[in-house]
């Protein structure tokens, strides 16, 4: 399981992806941005089809489309409802993808692997770009950490302090787009979403302290991908299945634990948990 070269590549890439997904995903869950986090990778998938049609590198197509998606959602949501705008941006990108796909047949075998990822097929020279862009994502989050946190938890206070929530939102969507661009060829457009939701949501229900929750979120994401790769190696089922179901399982455990803790300590922390829920 560890000897083969391609397995080492899989372990390394999966670890990088899990760290990025754990950190970015924490803010996705905190801000209630699950829909954009689903729409950007899925829409970017259409960009890969366009790149194949033009004969350029898939990464460029993914990058252009995920940025277009992020900026489109960010700018249109000033005027309309955010969820409506996200849905329409997503279907428009996918419709373009359908148009690209109708023009070429070369791309078809790639559809499944771009949707569900091909982590066991990562080549050694794909690791460096993933690591660099992953680092860029974490650095970007670190730079905008305070305003991002403030505008996620108490948007009113953030506005009062002169933080432009809308700009922060666009910055954050760009980080999601960046994370998407490099992770889609590795883990797939759909899988990155599961990884950005399940572990962070579980971490959030286990603790309400931000830094601890973020660390926990990364740890749970690591556990999820490592277990998924090992299980996939042993049972020969797709990695995506294990990531998707493990994420939900972790969330279920987190919710159960939170409920149990609340029933045990209700009289003492009634006020604290009310704040936590608010």
């Amino acid at each position: 399981m560890f000897a083969a070269g391609f397995m080492m590549n899989a372990w390394t890439t999966a670890t990088i992806v899990a760290v990025v997904a754990g950190v970015v995903g924490y803010f996705v869950v905190l801000r209630g941005s699950a829909f954009p986090a689903h729409a950007i990778p899925k829409g970017a998938f259409a960009g890969a089809a366009g790149a194949t049609l033009l004969g350029i590198n898939t990464l460029i197509g993914l990058g252009v489309f995920s940025l277009l998606g992020a900026l489109g959602i960010g700018s249109l949501s000033r005027r309309g409802r955010r969820d409506v705008v996200t849905a329409l941006a997503l279907v428009m990108m996918l419709a373009l993808g359908a148009a690209f796909l109708s023009r070429t047949t070369e791309y078809e075998p790639q559809v499944y692997s771009l949707l569900f990822g091909e982590i066991l097929g990562v080549s050694s020279n794909a690791i460096l770009p993933v690591a660099l862009v992953g680092l860029a994502c974490i650095a970007a989050i670190a730079v905008i950490y305070r305003p991002l946190m403030l505008s996620s938890i108490v948007p009113e206070v953030a506005e009062a302090r002169g933080i432009r929530s809308h700009r922060i939102e666009i910055c954050f969507l760009i980080v999601v787009a960046l994370a998407t661009t490099v992770t889609v060829p590795v883990v797939g457009a759909l899988l990155i979403f599961s990884l950005m939701i399940g572990p962070p949501a579980a971490a959030r229900s286990l603790t309400s302290r931000p830094v601890l929750a973020m660390i926990l979120s990364v740890a749970l994401a690591l556990v999820t991908v490592w277990t998924a790769i090992a299980a996939s190696y042993l049972y020969n089922w797709p990695v995506g299945f294990f990531v998707g179901t493990l994420g939900a399982l972790l969330y279920g455990i987190g919710r159960g634990w939170a409920a149990w803790r609340r029933t045990r300590t209700r009289p003492v922390t009634g006020f604290a948990s009310a704040i936590e829920r608010a």
Binding site: V29, H38, F116, I197, V239
Partner: peptide, 21 residues
């Protein structure tokens, strides 16, 4: 709501990965 939808969607995606495979 956002989170609940996300969790169900994530699970469904995992299941389709398996079924399609």
């Amino acid at each position: 709501r956002d989170l609940a939808t996300g969790i169900v969607l994530g699970t469904a995606i995992g299941l389709s990965a398996l079924f399609l495979y």
